[in-house]
Amino acid sequence: GAYRMKIYDRDELRGQMSELTDDCISVQDRFHLTEIHSLNVLEGSWILYEMPNYRGRQYLLRPGEYRRFLDWGAPNAKVGSLRRVMD
């Protein structure tokens, strides 16, 4: 299947937008971000990790809009890595 997600540095799907279609071992290295404040999962399911290298707390992201970090259940906006959930 296809995988696509848009990430934003501000809440409510605002601010600088970056797009992912594959795994990202370090959000900071690739996008120069340490925080993601909202996101829109367009295709596929993903796991968001608090730390790089797929470590730390993890949150399942199904397709849909997440307008603030509380929407995916996190206590803050800190994001380290993102990985696709393969079928």
Rank of each mutant, 00 (worst) to 15 (best):
R4H: 10
Y49I: 00
G56R: 02
T21D: 12
T34R: 05
S18T: 08
D71C: 10
I25W: 12
M51Y: 10
R55Y: 05
S26A: 10
P75A: 07
L61M: 06
N53E: 07
I7G: 02
S45W: 04
I47S: 02
D11P: 13
L60P: 11
Y66K: 08
M17S: 07
L82N: 01
M51W: 05
P75Y: 02
Y3P: 09
L13Y: 14
I25S: 13
A77K: 06
V41G: 01
S26D: 13
Y54D: 02
A77S: 08
G1F: 15
R68F: 03
R68P: 01
V79A: 07
Q58L: 04
S18Y: 12
G44C: 02
R55L: 07
V79N: 09
G56N: 04
F69A: 12
N76S: 12
V85N: 04
R4I: 12
S45K: 10
G1K: 13
R57Y: 09
M5C: 04
R10H: 12
R68S: 10
Y66D: 01
D22W: 09
R14D: 10
A74H: 08
E19G: 14
D23Y: 12
A77M: 15
R83V: 09
L60Y: 14
L70N: 09
H32W: 03
A77T: 05
F69H: 07
M51A: 05
K6H: 06
F69M: 09
G64I: 02
H32L: 07
P52F: 03
Q58R: 06
V79K: 00
S81N: 00
A77H: 11
D23N: 06
D11I: 06
D23L: 01
R30H: 14
L82V: 08
Y49G: 00
D22I: 07
E50D: 09
S45Y: 06
L48D: 00
C24S: 14
S38R: 03
A74E: 03
D29Y: 09
R84T: 04
M17Y: 10
G15P: 02
L48N: 00
R68T: 12
E43A: 03
R14L: 09
S81R: 00
S26W: 14
E12A: 06
D23T: 03
G15C: 09
R4T: 10
W46N: 01
I7H: 01
A74S: 07
G64N: 12
T21S: 10
Q16N: 05
R14H: 06
P63A: 06
L33E: 10
Q58A: 04
I7Y: 02
I47N: 04
A2E: 12
P52H: 03
P63V: 06
L39E: 00
G15Y: 04
S45N: 09
G56Q: 00
G44K: 05
S38V: 01
H37G: 07
R84E: 00
C24T: 10
S45A: 09
G80A: 03
L60G: 04
R10G: 10
Q28Y: 10
S38D: 02
Y49L: 00
S38H: 13
R14Q: 09
C24G: 01
R68N: 03
G64H: 03
G80P: 00
E50C: 03
G15H: 12
L33T: 09
A2H: 11
E43W: 05
Y8E: 00
V79W: 03
G1Y: 15
I36A: 08
G1L: 11
D23C: 15
R84C: 13
F69Q: 13
S45M: 10
I47Q: 04
E19D: 15
R67Q: 09
R4E: 15
R14F: 13
S26Q: 13
E43R: 07
Y8M: 03
Y54L: 03
R57A: 06
S38I: 03
G1A: 13
Y3H: 07
R83M: 06
K78C: 11
E50T: 07
M86G: 09
E19H: 15
M17C: 13
G80K: 02
S26E: 15
I36Q: 02
V79G: 03
G15M: 08
E35P: 11
Y3M: 15
Y3W: 07
Y59W: 07
R10P: 02
Y59M: 14
I7E: 00
D71E: 07
R30C: 14
V27H: 03
P75L: 10
I36G: 10
P52A: 06
R55A: 10
E35W: 05
W72L: 02
M86C: 08
Y3L: 15
L13C: 05
Y66E: 00
K78F: 12
L60W: 04
R67T: 06
G44I: 00
Y3K: 15
A77Q: 14
D9I: 14
L39P: 00
R30D: 10
Y49A: 02
H37Q: 06
E43K: 08
K78V: 05
L20N: 15
N40F: 12
Y8P: 01
S26H: 11
R62A: 07
G1R: 06
C24W: 04
D29T: 09
Y66F: 15
K6Y: 04
S81F: 00
N76L: 14
Y3T: 15
S81L: 01
I7T: 13
H32E: 09
L61D: 00
Y3V: 14
L82F: 09
E50Q: 04
L60A: 07
E19P: 04
L20H: 05
Y54N: 02
Q58F: 07
P52M: 05
G80C: 13
N53I: 03
L48M: 13
D87V: 04
A77F: 15
L48P: 00
S45R: 08
G15N: 15
W72K: 00
R30F: 05
E19N: 14
Y59N: 02
R10W: 12
F31E: 15
P75G: 07
P63L: 02
D9H: 08
G64P: 00
T21P: 14
Y59L: 07
D22S: 08
E35Y: 07
M86N: 15
G1H: 04
Y54K: 00
E43Y: 04
D87E: 12
L70P: 13
D29W: 08
L42H: 15
W72I: 01
G56E: 00
V79I: 11
G44V: 00
M51L: 11
S18Q: 11
P52V: 03
R83Q: 15
D29P: 10
Y49S: 02
R14W: 09
C24D: 08
C24E: 11
N53F: 03
G56I: 03
R55H: 11
A77V: 14
S81W: 01
D9W: 09
L20F: 12
L60E: 07
G15F: 09
Y59S: 03
K6E: 12
L61R: 03
G1V: 09
Y49Q: 00
K6R: 11
D11A: 04
V79Q: 00
R10N: 11
N76W: 07
V85W: 10
Y54W: 05
V85I: 06
Q58H: 14
S45L: 04
D87I: 15
I36E: 00
K78I: 12
I7C: 09
M17H: 12
L13H: 14
D22G: 07
D22K: 11
L13M: 13
P52L: 02
P52D: 11
T21R: 11
M17P: 08
I36F: 08
T34V: 04
R57P: 06
D29I: 04
Y49D: 00
A74G: 14
T34N: 14
R67S: 08
Y54E: 02
I47P: 00
R30A: 11
L33C: 11
A77E: 08
Y49N: 00
